[in-house]
Amino acid sequence: MFKILVIEDNADHFALIENTLLTAFKEGVKLYHAIKLAQGIETLEQQPFDICLCDLKYPDSPLDKTVEKLKQLNSSVPIIILTSLNSIEIAQDLLQHDIQDYLPKEELSPTLLYRICMHAIERKQQQLALEKRNEEMQTFCASLSHDFKGYLRRIPQIATLLRRDLSEHTTLSSKDLERFSMLENSTSAIRDLVDSLGKFLLIGHEETKSEPIDLSALFKKLETLIINTNEDNIQLKLDVANNLPTVIGNMSQLIILFHNLISNGIKYNKNSPSIHITSSIDKNQKQCKILVKDNGIGIEKLYFQQIFSPFRRLHNNHEYKGTGLGLSIVKRIIELHKGHIDIESEPGKGSTFIVYLPLYNSP
């Protein structure tokens, strides 16, 4: 017996849907009917259902408000949109926000409706199983990172005590001091690697909240962060408009993204680092274009794709310290935000990373 919720305000349409469902589900079906969206969402939150069929227009919720409410809805029940032919594009957009499928009312048939419902139920079950594994992965990574950091914190402490005790009994040679320095540097490098690896593993697996992000506010936070965390004489020029557009995404992840790009320009640099950030809006493509330009050592064209792979480094640790994860984290964040990244660079002439992010409310 399938338990199905139908949110539909038109009595004639509901009668058609009811008849089609009763014909489609030979195993039997128990129908629940809501004529308002608020009533349907409340019912969905209070009771378990196998599936929910939902219209897009209601007396208490016009089309635009219904779309926003469905995008924000977090339910374990698979939802199928029943729409008219002239709103298929809207329904397709909803597929990016946890709606399982859509079906034009004009194409309703028992066979098609049954197949779509069963596929939606199966996909939702797979999605929930994946979310559970992701949650377990997040817990595991957090626990592993915590344990590693605990041990790593002890190594410098023990090394400091050991050096002090030895200094009280003997005179340490320059070689001895160099070895202690190597121990401290190696511990610091491992700590950085654990931090970067934790970020890399969790991005895309942890539950992140997407919301409208004001890019102007983001870059102001980023400027403060860069200035406060770097002692070098860094020229950071944010040539971005005060009225930058809004994108949909996660503030923390976007800050990590641009912080990594700026840090790259600072790290891989033989000059006084100079970072110049500019932006533009492509209304035709409905995206924001952000350029992060540095005066660093540059990259040969044949390495443009390789640098975004995890642990792929073009220089050894003696030349430039790093974990080999910074740009792979950048790429993963951009992919999660449904954007893309390009690079323009030439050895000895710096690099320009070009980030494309979709504008908020783009269809």
Results as ranks from 00 to 15, higher is better:
4 I>E: 02
4 I>C: 07
9 D>H: 02
13 H>Q: 10
21 L>D: 07
25 F>K: 00
27 E>Q: 09
28 G>S: 05
31 L>R: 05
32 Y>R: 14
33 H>P: 00
38 A>S: 03
46 Q>L: 13
46 Q>V: 06
49 F>Q: 11
53 L>P: 04
60 D>N: 06
63 L>M: 15
64 D>V: 03
83 T>V: 09
87 S>D: 14
88 I>A: 10
92 Q>N: 14
95 L>I: 12
95 L>A: 05
101 D>H: 09
103 L>S: 10
104 P>A: 13
108 L>N: 13
115 R>Y: 02
116 I>F: 03
121 I>W: 01
123 R>K: 14
129 A>E: 06
133 R>K: 02
134 N>G: 10
138 Q>T: 12
139 T>N: 06
143 S>I: 00
147 D>I: 02
149 K>F: 05
150 G>I: 00
151 Y>W: 02
153 R>W: 08
155 I>T: 12
157 Q>P: 01
159 A>W: 09
159 A>Y: 01
166 L>T: 10
174 S>N: 06
177 L>W: 07
180 F>I: 10
182 M>C: 11
183 L>P: 01
184 E>R: 06
184 E>V: 01
188 S>P: 00
188 S>I: 01
200 F>V: 00
203 I>E: 04
206 E>D: 06
207 E>D: 12
208 T>V: 11
212 P>N: 06
227 I>F: 09
231 E>K: 12
242 N>P: 03
243 N>H: 14
243 N>L: 12
253 Q>V: 03
259 H>M: 03
266 I>K: 02
272 S>M: 08
273 P>K: 02
275 I>E: 09
291 L>V: 09
296 G>H: 02
308 F>A: 08
309 S>F: 13
317 N>W: 00
319 E>H: 05
324 G>D: 04
325 L>T: 10
327 L>F: 07
329 I>S: 03
333 I>C: 10
337 H>E: 08
338 K>L: 15
340 H>L: 11
341 I>K: 08
342 D>W: 04
350 G>C: 07
355 V>Q: 06
356 Y>K: 05
363 P>M: 14
